[in-house]
Write a protein that binds this DNA or RNA. Structure first.
Length: 253
DNA sequence: ATGGCTTGAGTGTCAAGA
């Protein structure tokens, strides 16, 4: 089974690239973040025409998540239970016996901002929910745009990024608490190229200079980590004309 | 140097992303 995640930074702009990517890579499931579309404007017909089914939870202008899958979904959830949030950042479903939790974790803006506190509160509620989900679903995948680079090797210039949003200690500790529930960072289960990142700033020729961060992740429960075959970042997608600033990440098990 | 690009909203130019 192949499961992928991609922050597309506007599905309206990126739809042709998403359709091309589905055709080329044939994932069983593709989780999207930052669709930036209300559900009534979601390009359902274009996607179902390619043989994929659609789940979406979106809003105007910001945020928005979706799951495209070859198989039908059940037990759909669109929010962290018992956590009040008007922002559409969560979409969970069970597909082909695997529980999939698609996340667009808040950015946090800067460590001294209100948005940073919102991010940490969000991560706390997420961790409590995932403990429960993991107990219910032995085959669990938690993936998406985490907006956290967990380790120094996930940052092109760790000294410059030390203490900054996306790489601050409170965020990295929150990521650690997620992993400590018993989830594996699938990317690190396999040998990877040096300086592998999943996001590069649009500015400063950051992609050409490989000034990136690895902030998009696929976490696997023990039962799935055990049968994992590969996890790859598709840098090719970042080379497209009008690319998303994030590259897709795909796991196979 | 708090900039540098891209998107959405909306027709000015700003908020937000990471």
């Amino acid at each position: 089974m192949k499961i992928a995640t991609w922050n597309v930074n506007s599905l309206k702009v990126r739809l042709p690239q998403v359709l091309d990517w589905l055709a080329a890579h044939q994932p069983d499931v593709l989780c999207l973040q930052e669709t930036k579309l209300e559900d009534v404007n979601f390009p359902t017909a274009e996607i179902t025409a390619t043989g994929y089914q659609v789940l979406k939870s979106g809003q105007k202008t910001y945020n928005g998540v979706a799951i495209l899958s070859k198989n039908p979904a059940t037990e759909v959830v669109t929010a962290i239970p018992c956590f009040v949030d008007v922002q559409k950042r969560v979409l969970a479903a069970t597909i082909a016996g695997v529980r999939i939790i698609n996340l667009y974790i808040p950015n946090g803006q800067s460590v001294d901002s209100d948005k940073f506190q919102y991010k940490l509160g969000w991560l706390g509620a997420l961790t409590a929910w995932l403990a429960d989900e993991l107990a219910r679903h032995p085959k669990l995948v938690v993936l998406g745009d985490f907006n956290i680079a967990p380790e120094e090797r996930d940052v092109h210039d760790p000294k410059a990024w030390e203490g900054q949003v996306l790489f601050s200690l409170p965020e990295r500790e929150a990521f650690r608490r997620l992993v400590d529930l018993g989830l594996a960072d699938s990317f690190r289960l396999f040998e990877q190229p040096e300086k592998s990142y999943s996001w590069w700033d649009y500015r400063m020729n950051a992609f050409r200079r490989n000034m990136g961060l690895r902030i998009d992740h696929i976490l696997l429960s023990p039962a799935l980590a055990e049968i994992g075959k590969s996890c790859t970042i598709d840098k090719e997608a970042r080379k497209a004309e009008r690319p998303s600033d994030h590259a897709p990440v795909m796991v196979e098990f």
